[in-house]
Nucleic acid binder design. Sequence first.
DNA 1: CCGAAGTGGATATGTCATATCCGCTTATGT
DNA 2: ACATAAGCGGATATGACATATCCACTTCGG
Lengths: 206, 206
Amino acid sequence: MSEETPVLRRDAEHNRQRTLAAAREVFAARGLQATLNDVAHHAGLGVGTVYRRFPNKEALAEAVYAGKLDDIRATAQAALAGRDAYEALSAFLERALEQAATDRGLRELIRQGGSDSRQIARTRAGIVESCGHLIARAQEQGTMRGDVTVDDIAPIVAMIDSVMDLPSAGASQPWRRYLALILDGLRTRPDHRGRHSSWSPAPTRS
Amino acid sequence: MSEETPVLRRDAEHNRQRTLAAAREVFAARGLQATLNDVAHHAGLGVGTVYRRFPNKEALAEAVYAGKLDDIRATAQAALAGRDAYEALSAFLERALEQAATDRGLRELIRQGGSDSRQIARTRAGIVESCGHLIARAQEQGTMRGDVTVDDIAPIVAMIDSVMDLPSAGASQPWRRYLALILDGLRTRPDHRGRHSSWSPAPTRS
DNA sequence: CCGAAGTGGATATGTCATATCCGCTTATGT
DNA sequence: ACATAAGCGGATATGACATATCCACTTCGG
């Protein structure tokens, strides 16, 4: 369990930071499929230097994103304190997706469960859990449809992500449009009683 | 402009059909990134046989999908005849996405404007055009929000597509849920006057 | 000033898809 | 029946590409 941190030479530590900074930029711009060569170049270092500190790309990605992801998790947990659960959930999703909007790598990490470390997986689970609490509470408060489920969160995030990947997604941030549309659709609407029945049954747990 | 069709030997024509059938299945199951080797194997043929008839994967994909896509375009055009434009658009999108749901390759083709032939691009443009007419007419009929645009179609399709790509998207077809949600959100709702103002400005043309 | 730590980047390695080539087989019509 | 053009298979050349290593050289730090 003890992390070995052999104490780096001053220049080495400096280069480690340069590597992390470059990785942040490159992953954000080009996604996680960017090469470690790319990262190294962008940092003004040789490939070997990068590989000395990080055994592979996944380790580097984790070092870059563990913090970012955990910030999001913390935001979700903080949202639990809000009075209006519906508003809290909406605000959280908007903030979280704002992060994602500027970071392609983060988006890919959030989306796929593929090459994740336990660390990342656990953090993501925490986020989903908080969302679940918020949904339940919003339903108790009568502000959210009863047929909404935690399992709706991932698809919703995926949908908004997909809009951000669209070529046109440049300046005007159209994803906000659709997030608002969807969140609005999750609201309780006493005046449209019959409408909700057209929904199919909720998705089942993965 | 004249298509050379040198008249194939009977067995060759047969194998051409086998190739097309195999390509349909393989592309539908694994997407367009499937190799021509995969397709050939699946057809019980050698790679060379496939390459004899189709110069490359793109040509094969076009042969496979030109018809399917044009069917969708025809459906869209037919929808223009419907009395209620909102209903017609909803029904069309549902039908079209039903096609996409069972065909990964079709989805990829619809989505990316990348390696398209003119043919495909034109067909897609036709589909979008019909959707535009339907939107305009629905707005005249007062059943659709005034701030909806043709440029909302692509993002909406992309969003639903992304749900279909999700691992959980197996049996229960959760995409119907979300399509219903979104379409419902595009409806005019006189009882929620203030709500729509929260939308950001419509996306600009690509 | 010495030795351990660090560095660069050419390159070995491995994977994978595309496309070709050519000796052999089969269809076809006379 | 046979000649011959057409077709076939699939091993393999080709080329991209990312990962990861290696080692001669440089730099740090006590």
